[in-house]
Design a protein around this nucleic acid. Sequence first.
DNA 1: CTGTGTGACTACACGCGCGTAGTTACGCGC
DNA 2: GCGCGTAACTACGCGCGTGTAGTCACACAG
Lengths: 170, 170
Amino acid sequence: MSEQGYRGPQVCKIVGITYRQLDYWARTDLLKPSISDARGSGTQRIYSYTDLLKLKVIKQLLDSGLSLKKARVALDVLSQYGEDPGSANLVMAGNQPVLVRSQDEIVDLVQRGQGVLSLVLPLSGVVKELNAAILEFAPPVDVEGEGEGSADAAPDDNATTDILKAGTGG
Amino acid sequence: MSEQGYRGPQVCKIVGITYRQLDYWARTDLLKPSISDARGSGTQRIYSYTDLLKLKVIKQLLDSGLSLKKARVALDVLSQYGEDPGSANLVMAGNQPVLVRSQDEIVDLVQRGQGVLSLVLPLSGVVKELNAAILEFAPPVDVEGEGEGSADAAPDDNATTDILKAGTGG
DNA sequence: CTGTGTGACTACACGCGCGTAGTTACGCGC
DNA sequence: GCGCGTAACTACGCGCGTGTAGTCACACAG
């Protein structure tokens, strides 16, 4: 099973953040690359598709005005429940993050009174934007071999590996 | 019609913020006291009940992890719709603040897809906490005379003006 | 194996949002 | 009107999160 990964600068284009942010987040343990971390100058950080998703979520949180501190808390939930976030909503109720499947649960949280929801983020939208950005900016990079059976690694498009070098030059 | 006001340090206790924050927010035009602004050393900032409400909202936003920049945007809506916020929810949908009356509208905003709600804050809870804090920490201060017909100025309790000096002593 | 590009590393600096300390001058009781 | 408390003012500094510039060293092509 070959894992596919993305290098730092590519990640920045896909997610829409600066390299400085990606670097800072990796150094401060907000999100380290799960495939391959940096081991000195010249090495490369290799991020997985799941990493991209988390990074995109972080960017959404920042764009929504949330602090990085809260983003760290929110990420914990994504790491725990980590499977198929496509149909869930990331909700922060009273500084505690939860994954909510149905919209009705959100109403429950609001009606329960005291709860201040500091975030209601539909992950399906994040996934859509992410896949579109991947196809637009850069394809993944094989790091251990060649195989195309992994549905977890990339959006459904297998012709993308051809423009690999085009991505590096740009 | 006598307006009732609260001085800086009292406001800090009621709202639950530091004086430095109140000072900074007044200087940077986040929220200036609507009754009487500062005019040099020794003068006093006199805040109205509505000011307290807005300050409490700001504190909730900060506690929820929102940045001051977003708080400024959110406050604009409170100033515009400024009447009877007790039964409304302050919602920020895609960096644009709106006042939502029914819970169903929130579901609409979520279902409409792309919308990231960076905040869902039930103002009724804020009002409750504020009134409780006022009665606990400090009563209002008359600045222009005496009258008790104004339901907009304070929670329903008229014996509070007696402990005025107790509040000043700290 | 060598050269080159590129991505990680380092140092420095900035703005925001406050904490802390000391100063100034008004409000209020007397 | 006078003194005293108190609240606003001023100056300085910090930590976070990031921008910018330059250096270093691995990865990959040749």
